[in-house]
Simulated scan of single mutants.
Amino acid sequence: MCQNIMPDWWEMIDLKRTLIKVKKGQRFIEESNKISGVFFVQDGFVKVHKHWGEREMIVRFAKKGDIVGHRGISGGNSLSPISATAMKDSVLCFLELDFFRSLLKTNNTFAYELMMFYADELQWSEQKMGSLVHLSVKERFIVNLLYLINHLGLDKENVLKAELTKTDLAAYIGTTYETIYRVISEMENENILLFSGKQIQIVDLEKLKLGFV
């Protein structure tokens, strides 16, 4: 946000924003509750999720610099379609909805960049939903893992820069824990990746990419 806001607004943002510290496991947006504003992750890691029948579906993950709560900005519905929970101790920057809308109306570059973000997210969401019908669980896992690598990055040891459990991955991909366990075991045997605790190390990135060709 700050990269695309006109300097004249910076002082007002400092006055209007609220920094909120949330603990690991703390939910700060509740599905179906009234929307009060949007959050930017200043530090930490967050999951955005919602109910999918009897199960939880993780919609996306948000890292430092990402926006959370934007899915609830609507002219016709004031209830949040998602929940958001900290996956580690995090610091959030909160802006009330009316002020956030004022920023959009008066900062064209910011509004444009947010529109591009919406477009990219919609495209990925449609691709992800299509994969539920057309791809096997292993193929869905590969597609989503490659997306997470691109979005979150790898460290010097080729470990994904986020700690995720097999339960998290199952909820993100749309399958069961038992199925994701089998898929990961198979890919470990193929020497493509290693899963240790909550860390995913990519042993052979090219081989991972070829798994979806």
Rank of each mutant, 00 (worst) to 15 (best):
N189I: 09
G153T: 06
F117T: 09
D43L: 15
L208M: 08
L205N: 06
W9Y: 13
M6L: 07
K88L: 06
K156L: 11
A84Q: 01
V183S: 05
L145M: 13
I29H: 03
Q42D: 14
G130D: 10
S125R: 13
M57I: 03
V46Q: 01
T109W: 00
P81L: 06
G75K: 04
I82F: 11
L103Q: 02
Y172A: 07
E121F: 06
P81V: 04
L148V: 11
E96T: 03
K198R: 08
N158P: 04
S131V: 04
C2T: 14
Y147V: 04
E54I: 09
L205I: 13
G25E: 09
E190A: 14
R55T: 14
F45D: 13
M129S: 01
V59W: 00
L135E: 06
K105E: 05
E56A: 07
D155N: 14
L164T: 12
H49E: 11
F141E: 06
T18Q: 01
S36G: 09
L194E: 12
M115T: 12
W10I: 14
G211P: 01
S36P: 02
E190S: 15
N189K: 12
E157R: 13
S125C: 00
I13G: 08
I192C: 02
I202N: 08
I58W: 00
I173M: 05
T175W: 05
V41R: 03
S32I: 12
H70P: 05
Y147K: 14
E190F: 10
T106R: 04
F94Y: 11
W52S: 15
I29Q: 02
R17N: 13
V133G: 02
A171V: 00
L114P: 02
V48P: 02
Q199N: 15
G211V: 10
L114G: 07
G174L: 06
I184V: 14
V59F: 03
Q199V: 05
G211F: 00
P81K: 09
Q123F: 03
K166R: 15
M6A: 09
I13L: 02
L146R: 02
M187C: 07
S196T: 13
K21T: 12
L164V: 08
I142V: 14
N33T: 05
A170W: 06
G72M: 07
M57R: 15
M87K: 06
K24P: 05
V203F: 06
Q26S: 14
I173F: 01
G37Q: 08
T109L: 09
N189F: 12
Q201P: 05
I29N: 08
L154G: 10
E96D: 15
R60L: 01
